[in-house]
Design a protein around this nucleic acid. Sequence first.
DNA 1: GCAGGTTGGTTGTAGCTACAACCATTTGGA
DNA 2: TCCAAATGGTTGTAGCTACAACCAACCTGC
Lengths: 159, 159
Amino acid sequence: MTEPRWLDEAQLAAWVRLAAVLELLPGVLDTQLRRDAGLTHFDYFVLAMLSEAPKRTLRMTALALRTNSTLPRLSHVVKRLEDRGLIERFPCPEDARATNARLTPAGWEKIQATAPGHVDTVRDHVIDVLTPTQITQLTKITEAILTTLDPNGHLSHAD
Amino acid sequence: MTEPRWLDEAQLAAWVRLAAVLELLPGVLDTQLRRDAGLTHFDYFVLAMLSEAPKRTLRMTALALRTNSTLPRLSHVVKRLEDRGLIERFPCPEDARATNARLTPAGWEKIQATAPGHVDTVRDHVIDVLTPTQITQLTKITEAILTTLDPNGHLSHAD
DNA sequence: GCAGGTTGGTTGTAGCTACAACCATTTGGA
DNA sequence: TCCAAATGGTTGTAGCTACAACCAACCTGC
């Protein structure tokens, strides 16, 4: 059993605050979306990814990759969104194993109506409290962290 | 309906990466703790807060505040940890309404044994991928964000 | 002292996520 | 050609969280 390398004061200060952000920010985003649109942040993210895809269509596997979710989780979520008429599923012509998920017109409307409020929330709690210099610093910092977390950059798409 | 203020390129870059960190980092921490110690990150946090408190004891309300959880959630979690012998509950002498939660010797052992591995994980994915300059930048940035998320600084305690 | 309201906590239930098991299709090699 | 393995998805179940309802003890003003 080797001696653990503890964090020094500066490192601890940074980590404690980052951990607090990790704990609080998702809840804030989730609450706003749930209240204003009846969507989970994950629901929103799924719709957003589809809205940016060609023909607003993606295979389940591709969608799972972009949203960092597992196939089972995605399957459940898409089924619920399908029940609400925001997404439709149909078998992939090229590969009979695969399933395509496509945004319906109602789903497109939904994401268009929801995006502004979501962006406002992100502004209020993150973007507008930072200086332009800090914004670029944050980009560099998160990029470094993602090097180990997401080596292939699957999540480097817009929100 | 006012025109939404969209994010410019630099702002979007920062937000997309931060959102990805928000999505991935908690899962990594949770997986390591669950695998090595059979604890949720939240379980770990509860034990850690107690371990730093005087007499390793806190009232449920105080513990809920430090862990940013609701009383119902904490009540469930503490009950499970009590069943595992890591925490014990007893009525507060000063206020018969209140309940105290105290770390048992087994709980103390548990957190001591678990902390090094957790710190290593934090190092691997956050601290050690950043320069000392970036560490101080990150502290400032997260501090600014927390101004709106946690105005009273309840979560500014060690992890 | 005692009625109304507040504080501190627990319990029950619905909803989402993780994990494992399962089925169907496709691919690769003997 | 045909079987084994890999790929793509779905379903079932257990566990955790959020929310609402609830109960007990404490305070305040009259």
